[in-house]
Write a protein that binds this DNA or RNA. Sequence first.
DNA 1: TTGTACGCGTTATCAC
DNA 2: GTGATAACGCGTACAA
Lengths: 331, 331
Amino acid sequence: MNNMKDRVTIYEVAKASGYSLATVSRVINKQSNVTEETRKKVEATIARLGYKPSALAQALATNKTTNIGIVIPSANYVYIANMLNGMTEVAKAKGYVLTLFVTNHSREDALSVVEKVITSHVDGAVIFDDELDVEDINKISSYQVPVVVVNNTIVGDKVASINFGYEHKIKEIIKNYFKSGDKKMYFLHVHNSGRLLERIEKAFIESHLEEKRSYGILSCDDSYRQTYQDFISFFKNTHQGYFLAYRDSIAMAVTNAALDSGLSVPGDVEVLSIIGTKYASMARPQLSAMHIDMKQVGMKAMDMMTDLLNGGLDEKSFKFESNYLPRVSTK
Amino acid sequence: MNNMKDRVTIYEVAKASGYSLATVSRVINKQSNVTEETRKKVEATIARLGYKPSALAQALATNKTTNIGIVIPSANYVYIANMLNGMTEVAKAKGYVLTLFVTNHSREDALSVVEKVITSHVDGAVIFDDELDVEDINKISSYQVPVVVVNNTIVGDKVASINFGYEHKIKEIIKNYFKSGDKKMYFLHVHNSGRLLERIEKAFIESHLEEKRSYGILSCDDSYRQTYQDFISFFKNTHQGYFLAYRDSIAMAVTNAALDSGLSVPGDVEVLSIIGTKYASMARPQLSAMHIDMKQVGMKAMDMMTDLLNGGLDEKSFKFESNYLPRVSTK
DNA sequence: TTGTACGCGTTATCAC
DNA sequence: GTGATAACGCGTACAA
């Protein structure tokens, strides 16, 4: 393989093989109207010159990048990594490549991400980021970019959505707890962690209001370490409670802080992880959790995306119901 | 925002504003040689028409996509997600976007990934995937794509590398353990999990050979659940040992299996996680672990990448030394 | 300061 | 079956 020479173009292949651009292009795209002999020859010079087509030029000519944009707040959460995993799997199977756009929970970045998604000319965009609102989605969509939105219910001509069934299930869990449970329930409110958590918090509050029970809302940080420290302090004065935590790591911060404060789980302190991952069952004590298989979500999202691109998506809305997996951290 | 109309091009902006392509192009690229007045006018019609430049056409014209390819075996590991997080952060700051190429530990996929990285015309590629060997890297590099390789030592004109210092440290840990430790050491061998683990395994073996100690190599699966089951069986016959595990989840499989088998940690069973993440300190008992901050690695990799792109990378090789963080799972 | 014309690497529509 | 040639949307010398 020769170093330090410019990339060879289709034009050079044409000249070197003695055929025209058109013919070379035909063999590249495996079209039929070309003699077996010329095909062989052209392929030979392609190999000899080490020619690789430019996806850029192809995309410009065909108006198709085989590229799908993924909008997420961060790649750093386990459940998002799981989803990413599912998406890359079916994307690869269907010949697409994924481009990452991360907003980092910032509205400012979200704005620039919207711009970039449009300018980058991706064939479609999968959005799992509450920082983008309906208007942002519509804006992207208005630029002929098909969209699949995760954790949202908006649909349209070229926009489909996947949403999560949490509220109903969580109300069920809470009201069931009222029957035999003896502890006050606390909801761990994490600032700016999205509409899903907001909806769940609302369901939490409603459940208590409906049964005229008192409850607590605890503001906490989105990091394990800080939340752990906060609960070490918290447990100095309060010695029991049932805590609903957003993610496994937040839930583990509570159980660990409880244990390290000499409290028992689930005797004194009960904890439920709302977005459970495999770590919920790996933690000790094992975390009771709600669960949606995010890899499946990612796969479904990409399936919907490719269907959208092929013009054949009938069900533009799909719902994943959460499971309740009672384990050790609750009674 | 109008729906269902074709994307407006620079040509239409030119016509609508009464200026030429060139002028419009200049205001888009914020060049100086344009009157404030015409700038205003052009920007007005750009806004009015909702024009967005095509990154594709720009890339074709300038020979610069602002796009960096990331090659990884999977997005599903925590330490890779951490690295991704670091990379997206500096990429965004420097105006780049990341596109993902995943090999899924398959040589076949690795081959097609090499092709795709080349054809996709990314400005550069960061590779953290042992499925790609030196020849693959050289091939990519020969197509004028600057490369930063993580977990490798190869360097070249346009290829830099980041490598990890594990072997020395692990030998130190092992030999130190020989002084007071009383258990036989086992290395958990995971099939096809890369050269880093292979090197560490080699260091493990060498340490024992040098001191004429016996050791064990245990083949295990790369999943928590399977490894947990395997160790439940294992601990029926064997009741103690010092286990070196690749990742936190594998290490947790061992500690959990030990505990659930009635063994004590670290009394009967000691465990060291080689690639520790934050989960090592969240697990109970807390895992002793080796640690490299993968977010920092990702940031450094992107820094090196952008330096490479700007032609000014002096240090083409960088080494991250691992830390040893003794916690509860070892004495 | 502004406009003209060409190039970037392909695909696709024609002819032949 | 094969070959000119015009798009695709933009950047940029060069000229005006």
